[in-house]
Structure formats: C-alpha cells, structure tokens
Amino acid sequence: MSIFNETVSRRKSQSFKWDQMEKIYNIPDASDILPMWVADMDFAAPKEVIEAIEKRLQHPVFGYSYVCDGCKDAIVQWFERRYNWTIDLQSILFHHGVVPAIASIIETFTAPGDKVAISTPVYPPFFNIPTAQGRVVEACDLVEKNGSYVFDFAALEETFKRGVRMYILCNPHNPAGVVWSREDLEQLVSLCIQYEVYLLSDEIHADIIFDNKKYVPILTVKDAEKAKIISCIAPTKTFNLAGIQAAMMVVPNSKLLAQLELNAQAHGQMALNAFASAAVQAAYSHGEAWLDKLISYLSINMAYVLKELNALEGISVTQPDGTYLLWIDYRQTGLSENDIMERLLTKGKLALEPGTKYGQAGEGFLRMNVACSLATVQEGVSRFKQALA
C-alpha cells in the first residue's frame, strides 16, 4: 500500500485539478485550498505504464502511428477475463476520450432539435454536450432510496413516449456510485428497443467496484443485440491516465459502426497517439495487481470518511457500489448550496463539487473525490468539519 500512501505534489504541473481552482471557483487565490473535486486521482500510474511510455520515448521519431494488434488484444483480454465480455476486435473504435466519443455519437445519430434523455443527477457533459449541439435534453430524475438511487422506469417510459431519439446511461453511475443490476439494464434495453431509442452507455468507471458488487457491461445483457447500443470504455479513470487521452467505443452493430467511422472521417479523427497506445496496452496487460490494491486502499479511505462525516449533525453519506466518488447529503443542515460552498472554500479551505452541477436533482448534495492518500483524506475531513463548525 506504500505506493498509495505517498502524497505526490501536483501543484504547478499543469494539473487541472490543482492549478485551475481560481478559474473554476472564481476566487483570487486557491494556494491554500485542498482540491477534492474533479474525478482525477492523485496516485501515480502503474510503473508498467510509465515504463511503456519511457520505452516508446527511447525511439526518437514520433511520426504517424497506429494502434497495434497487441494493444487491441490487451483490451479484449481484460474485459473477457474480468467481466466475461467477449469484444469483437472489429467492433472497437478509438477516440481521444469518453467525452469526445459521446459528442461524436450524439452528432452521428441525432439531429438538431432531437430529444436526448438522461437520468439525473448525472455527469454534466450528458446535458452540456447535447445542448451545445442543439439537441433538447429530457431529464428524468432517478429516485433516491436509502441513500442510493433507482430508476423510475414508468417515468422513463413516459419520457421515451415523447419522441426521444437517444438515451445516455452512466454505468457505474456518476456521481452516486450506483452499479446497475442486470435486471435494471435489461429493462432499460427493452424500453430502448420498444421505442427505437439509441442507447449510449458511458462505462468509464467500470473497473472500480466495491463489496462484491458486479459491473455488468450493457452489451452482455438479454436482447442487447436487438438494440442500437454504443458502449464507451476506457482505462483512464481506472489507472489515472486522463491526460493521456484514450478511449474506445464498442459498436457490434455494423451499420452503427459504419456511421461512426464516417463521422470520424468527416472530422479527421485519427487513432490514438503513440504514447496513448503504449499506455493502454501496458495498463490492460499488467495493471491488474495495481488495480486490486487500489480498490482495497480506496475502501479504507471511504470507510474513514463515512465514519467521520456520518457522525456530523445533518450530514449523511452512503457507501457507493463503485467509483472513488462520495455523494454527500447535507440537506438536514438547513444550509443552501451557496452557503455550504462558501463555508467550504473560505472557512474550510476545501474544494468539493456542488450537487446542482449534476442537474437540479443534485441540490442538497456535494461530491467528494477520495482517490488520494489517506493523509490527504484525513486532512479533507478535518477541513470539512472546520467548514461546518
């Protein structure tokens, strides 16, 4: 666990998380604020990934490159080994990230004015990207139940009846950390088939799962082959490689695949860069032991935060099924979002994310990232308490 106990200084490293807080939170100086907001780990990548990039750097020519079969095989073997999901090599399309992939998918299969449905609270690009592309976002709130969330399928069906063209799924769910069951996913797929709705599934958080929960790839559920599904996967959240910019779209339907390839051509979208390809192959080939240790470490961090924050008056936190994110319920404090954010930033010197960033259904919540050393987590909890004191 020593590799995760180490606190790596990231200030002045062009870190979005650490060096952009003045801009994000509209404050003059964030040098004394602890960032526990954006979904970016403070852990060093697995040494095998670093070594693979260093090896590629030893060759001094950085011309055009392609994704080798070894990289593709590593991806396929990872999902086969861990999730019993057999991915056809020919169904994989590479992109520079899951968010850009989402933008490409929306642009390919919907038109301006089309309706795109989402289940809120949810990751902001799910509503920001369709809106920016001139689509109409139909938000159907998830139902909070015992500190977690469930689908309201009756409400979702009513939403689909209004002529929805595409639905965007987050599995595991960000920000609430729900790992959707096979039964939930089958019901969702059934609705998408019935109402001829495209299903875009963001599965970037799939590898970080706790307490014997099981991530179910959307493309493995009953009748998935009958639906119009595009699944987005990536090693970037798993191994902290967001700056490497690599993601994959898995598209078994050959007609959908051809349309996405045409969209890529229209935008001059190329394959992964040489360093991303090396990192992806190394991560999926050699990162399993590192990941298992990471999950154990994150479990310790989460247990600590839950114990400490649930002892505070008006605060409630539920253990998530997956992700390294905590969804903190502060509604019983009586504080408004502006009040608690002001307290956190000015009194606690702690940067968390306000719940309404994830839609109006997130009002009364905060998102905290605990993917950092236990010492940093302890400092963050101390600052949280100071903010509310």
Rank of each mutant, 00 (worst) to 15 (best):
L272S: 09
K17T: 12
A278W: 11
F365W: 12
G147R: 05
F153K: 05
I300H: 14
I50C: 03
R383Y: 04
Q332H: 10
E51K: 13
D339E: 15
V150K: 03
Y83E: 01
H267T: 13
K214W: 00
I27Q: 12
I233C: 08
P130A: 08
H173V: 01
V116W: 00
S285Y: 00
E288L: 06
K349Y: 00
W37V: 03
F160K: 03
A30K: 04
T86M: 04
V251K: 07
S190D: 14
Y83W: 11
P28V: 02
K145G: 00
V216K: 02
V150D: 01
V116K: 02
A247T: 11
E225Y: 07
S277N: 15
Y83S: 02
T333L: 03
Q90S: 14
D40A: 13
W180N: 02
T346V: 00
A111S: 15
S148M: 05
L298D: 06
S65M: 00
Q269G: 06
S254R: 12
D88I: 03
G163W: 03
L272W: 15
V8A: 02
V189Y: 14
A271I: 12
G147V: 07
F365H: 15
L309W: 13
G359S: 11
S15T: 05
H59A: 03
G322Y: 06
P28T: 07
S15K: 08
L325Q: 12
L219V: 01
E261V: 13
K222C: 05
D339H: 08
M341T: 12
F153C: 02
A74R: 08
L93M: 05
A264P: 05
D141I: 00
Y304M: 05
H95C: 06
V250R: 03
R10C: 04
I193G: 11
E337Q: 13
D184Q: 09
G359A: 10
A206P: 04
G359I: 06
K55N: 09
H205W: 14
G177D: 04
A311H: 07
I328K: 04
Q187K: 15
A289C: 04
I50S: 10
L388N: 05
G63Y: 06
L188M: 10
Y25V: 02
L191E: 07
S148P: 00
D32T: 12
E183Y: 07
L93V: 05
N174A: 06
T333Y: 02
E225A: 14
V179I: 12
E138I: 14
S13W: 08
S181N: 07
N338Y: 09
K357Q: 11
R135V: 08
Y304C: 11
Y64C: 01
I218T: 13
K237P: 10
M249W: 06
D339V: 05
R81L: 01
Y25M: 08
C140S: 15
E54D: 14
E48C: 13
E261F: 01
A266Y: 04
G287H: 08
C232F: 11
L306F: 05
P125F: 12
N240C: 13
I75H: 06
L260V: 11
L325F: 11
V8R: 11
H286Q: 09
I33M: 09
N146R: 10
I3C: 08
E313Y: 05
V305M: 06
N128H: 09
T318S: 15
K55W: 07
L34Q: 13
C140P: 03
N253V: 09
K222I: 06
G355D: 10
